[in-house]
Design a protein around this nucleic acid. Structure first.
Lengths: 141, 141
DNA sequence: GTTATAATTGAAAAAGATTTTCAATAAGGT
DNA sequence: ACCTTATTGAAAATCTTTTTCAATTATAAC
């Protein structure tokens, strides 16, 4: 995956590549944990000091529409964004340091079928997040 | 489950039973779908016209702390609340009418073990929501 | 039943998050 | 280099949620 693929995708949908979008995109591409708009704002301003918070919101919206980033939901709040996974990936979050890992979750089909039969629902989509402690937070290193 | 069990539980933790709390509790106990604080406010004011929105927030907070209601997360927003399930239950939501159904999801342990081994994480908790169409919305009745 | 006391209430204000408006700017095709 | 039009940032507006505070009221003690 080339590191400018996100910008290419933005451009392919008719967007112009600006300094502001470059900064926000770089922050999101390299984030190890989910970031709120304000956190993105603070990080991106190191590269584009003139950047406005509104532009961060607008750029995040575009990246989300393209499926490049996803919203991460916590008990405490749901404003954080993280790069999206490919295909049927789900999120595993460290409760201590916030680090996010994506994992495959294809073996859920049996569950969906069972629940669909039990409830009469047609299951269309699902949404799974796991929480725990990452190796470093666990072992102290 | 007696219909005033929620009030009993509130009282057991030192809370006083007021008209406002009665109204909010009744709304949440009988809701078929997740409601936002403002929706609870509107519904509860039919019983307690004097009710303030702040009190709704405060009562929802108490009910959530007691584990009687849970926050429901949607793409569009995460302010809605619904009665909580017992034990390891998860949510199934109808995308069309919003109806919520709780189902058991005990067969996820294998998945957790696999992901834990793969990532080095110690999995502590999880969180699963399914989306689909309920029987009535599907069959047109 | 009356009283005392401490939790609870609603209104208003404050705080936070997000969206809208709008004139100035600048990207990218020509 | 020019033109068109998307994009930008500041300010204001909108929503949601929390805090503050004086008045009210549930509950326990008498």
């Amino acid at each position: 995956m080339p590191h400018d693929s996100w910008l290419d995708q933005l451009q392919a949908t008719g967007c112009r590549i600006t300094g502001a979008r470059r900064a926000v995109t770089e922050v999101m591409q390299s984030a190890e944990r989910a970031l709120t708009p304000v956190e993105v704002y603070d990080a991106a301003r190191k590269r584009a000091p003139h950047l406005g918070l509104v532009t961060v919101y607008r750029t995040l919206e575009k990246l989300e529409a393209l499926g490049l980033i996803q919203r991460v939901h916590h008990e405490q709040g749901c404003q954080a964004f993280l790069r999206a996974g490919v295909g049927h990936q789900h999120l595993l979050l460290c409760e201590r340091c916030g680090r996010a890992v994506l994992f495959d979750g294809d073996d859920l089909d049996a569950l969906f079928e069972r629940v669909g039969k039990q409830t009469g629902f047609e299951i269309k989509s699902h949404w799974l997040q796991l929480y725990g402690l990452c190796q470093e937070c666990r072992t102290g290193f």
